[in-house]
Every structure is written in C-alpha cells, then in structure tokens.
Amino acid sequence: MIDFSRVQKELQECTRDTEASGIKVSPKSDNLARLIGTIPGPIGTPYEGGTFQIDISLPGMKNEDVGMVINLCGVIGGFLFADGYPFEPPKMQFATKVWHPNISSQSGAICLDILKDQWSPALTLKTALLSVQALLSAPQPDDPQDAVVAQQYIRDYQTFIGTARYWTETFAKTSSLGVEEKVQKLVEMGFAEARVRSALEAVGGDENLALEKLCSV
C-alpha cells in the first residue's frame, strides 16, 4: 500500500525547492499513485535546453499481500502500508522521447540501478529524478537499455551528439521554434526541403548551423 502521507510531504518539499532544482513533481490524477516528473536537460549536454517529462507510477500493494496487511493491522495497530512505495521503487519512464544509451528510444524505459535493486526507502521522488538527470549527463553505454543508441555512442560519438541534440530540439523544446517552423524558414530562403531536413538533423536542430552547412555545400 502506498504511504500517501509521505507522498504529500514529498510534493510539498519538492514545490518549495523547484526554483533551485528545476525539478517538478505533480500528480496526474487525484489519487497520487500516478505523477508526472519534470527535469531540465543538464547544461553542457545535448539535452541542454530541453524539458523532459517522466511518467511516475507508485507501486501499491500486491493482491497476495492483502491478507498479510489485515493481519498486521491486527497485530500492530496503525500499520497501514506494506511493500508499496516507498519500500518499493517508483516506476519511472520518459514520456518525452529522448536519445540516450540507457533510455529506450521506443518506450522511454530507464535503466538505472536506484530504480531497481539499489532503491532505498530513504530516497525520494526528487532524489530519484535528480539521479535520472545525472544519468543524462553521464551515459553508461556499457550497460545499455537501447542497444542501437549505445552502439552509436561507442562507434560514432559525433553522430550520437547530433542525434541526441536533434531529438532534444524536436521533442523536448516547447518554447522555442519547433522543427517544422525552422524547416519552413529555411525552405523560404530557397533550399530544398529534403536537404533542409537532413542538414537540420546533422547539426542537431540548430538553424544557424544548418544554414551554414547548407551554404557551404
């Protein structure tokens, strides 16, 4: 069973701290078992400038534990949770598409030890999200979640950086110009659309770099 009182406290603490950390957690619905986490892409990485949303689902009680919990309630008065969050790790996956060796480019599944066997109930949603953010800064291609991305990271680092930046531009940026607007802008300058798209992708979505590239050929 989820300890909702603790989840409430965590949300309050996180809200107080959002200015400093940039990390937000907000409930998806009113039962607090499903939440949305938001982390900024770390500075100095291809994820810089992006805002990434993470689906959080808090594990509750397993069906087979129900009897035990009732029993425990009888034995130890007021014992209201068993085995759910925070004793079991929160389930997290990227809702925003991201190009990273330890994150599935298809499903957004995250390969991170503290979300599995290294979880501790003394960790919080905020500390877990901070770890996810740290994972964006420090990919571990030797322990990949997405083999294709990991291979690219190892064999062709420059292309990896370009693709990761392009995905950030495409999927993780809401405020700046979308890719379609950039394409339109460059096409209006007289370049062919296919060339514009491949140039944008090659430089990671930066329209100035793309323009340079288009002019240099």
């Binding site: 007021g78 014992f79 949770f81 085995d83 004793f87 503290i114 501790s120 109930p121 003394a122």
Partner: peptide, 25 residues
C-alpha cells in the same frame, strides 16, 4: 513502522536480506 516495512520488503526479496544495510543510501 518504517523499519518493519523495510525489513519485510528485503526479506521477501530473498537471501539478500542477510546483508541488509541502513536504509540511508
């Protein structure tokens, strides 16, 4: 109560509970 939940989760997870550490990471 929290120790109780921590210990039960660990024991239900298997023999890893024999090397249980303080919950502080």
């Amino acid at each position: 109560e929290c120790w109780g939940g921590y210990i039960r989760t660990s024991i239900n997870d298997g023999p890893g509970c024999l090397t249980l550490r303080c919950p502080e990471p």
